[in-house]
Amino acid sequence: MTIPLQIAAKGISDSSPTITDYSYNEAWEAIPKAKKDGYNVILEPYPFIANGTIAETDWNPSDINQWFIVWGNHLKELAAKCEQNNVDGIYIASNLVHLEDYTDKWKTLIADVRKVYNGKILYRTNYWATADWAPETIVAYNKKLNNPIFGIVDIIAIGAYFELTDNRNPTVDQLIDAIYSVPLYGRGQNIFKEIKAFNDKWNKPILFGELGIPPYSNSPEQPHNAFGELGEYNESIQANWFEAWIRVFQAQDWWQGYSVYAISDEKSVYNIIGKEAESIIRGQTLGGKENTFTYLISTLKHLEKRIEALESK
């Protein structure tokens, strides 16, 4: 069970984020209950920027040194409390695109966290796109792949909002084909191969830290887009999306499953409760074995959302 804890920033350039008191209290109320019920628990310090109006992928602090000092202090405090409460894992970052290249600073932060915490350390990187006709995208991917940060964490997590196809009603098989060779803009990106390369290089398990898509016809082209023109409503798109990713990755012993985005938030276009995708997710199996589903309920009241985590065993 992944439990988020809100860390708030005033704006896109804020270098001194703060832990939100109510979220802190709710997280540490939920964690002992989850542990008592027999769940493995991951704590996720979750960026909340400008009251949720700015995505964490856009966060670009003006003072990098100050940000790492403040963020690091928060992480060390939370990690020490995780150790005291037998929390199984902690995220050190989630989709912080503009901060990923500061490898030496992440190494120092991770070393400091390990001094007070013996559980699993997770780092979540954002999705990417590559195309043979755009060599700069290949360079960017290889730079990401070779970032030493992935070798010093315990689990590599990915925000899996990969852009697949402009097909407005793709079947499961068409989505599977797209994962192996993205037809969108003629990219030909082999997403499976590129994700597997992280395990090949770093020998670390891989978790889809977020997997989700709105049930609309434009979403297979931009699954990360919750605004603008979404197209026609179509629940089969969302259901097929989850089925396709499972079929592609289920046999890989290095794949740890995925966290569902989002659950039971009626205001979110990603919500899967009451839709076709819900039955698909509940009925999925990996490698012929039963799944163990663990559920994540976000207590971030300002976000008004809930997230459910699925861990496959």
Rank of each mutant, 00 (worst) to 15 (best):
P47D: 13
P47W: 02
P47C: 10
F48R: 08
F48Y: 15
I49M: 05
I49W: 03
A50S: 15
A50K: 14
N51W: 12
G52T: 07
G52C: 02
I54T: 15
E56N: 14
D58I: 03
D58E: 12
D58A: 09
W59L: 14
N60M: 11
N60T: 15
N60C: 11
N60D: 15
N60Q: 12
P61C: 04
S62Q: 14
S62F: 05
D63I: 02
D63C: 08
I64T: 12
I64Y: 06
N65F: 00
N65W: 01
N65Q: 09
Q66V: 10
Q66R: 11
W67I: 02
W67L: 09
V70R: 08
V70I: 11
V70W: 04
W71D: 00
W71F: 00
W71T: 00
W71E: 00
G72F: 01
G72C: 03
N73S: 07
N73P: 04
N73K: 03
H74P: 08
H74V: 14
H74E: 07
H74L: 12
H74F: 13
K76Q: 07
E77Q: 13
E77C: 11
E77A: 13
E77L: 12
L78V: 15
L78W: 08
A79T: 07
A79V: 02
A79C: 07
A79M: 07
A80F: 14
K81N: 13
K81Q: 12
K81H: 15
C82M: 03
E83S: 12
E83F: 03
N85P: 04
N86Y: 00
D88E: 08
G89P: 10
I90K: 03
Y91K: 09
Y91R: 02
Y91T: 06
I92G: 10
A93Y: 00
S94W: 04
S94C: 15
L96N: 04
L96R: 01
L96E: 10
V97M: 11
V97T: 06
L99V: 02
E100H: 04
E100W: 02
E100P: 10
D101I: 03
Y102S: 11
T103P: 12
T103K: 10
T103F: 11
D104H: 00
D104Q: 13
D104G: 10
K105H: 05
W106G: 10
W106I: 06
W106N: 05
K107I: 07
T108M: 11
T108S: 15
T108K: 08
L109N: 03
L109C: 09
L109Q: 01
I110A: 01
I110Y: 00
A111W: 01
A111Q: 06
A111I: 06
D112W: 04
D112N: 15
D112P: 09
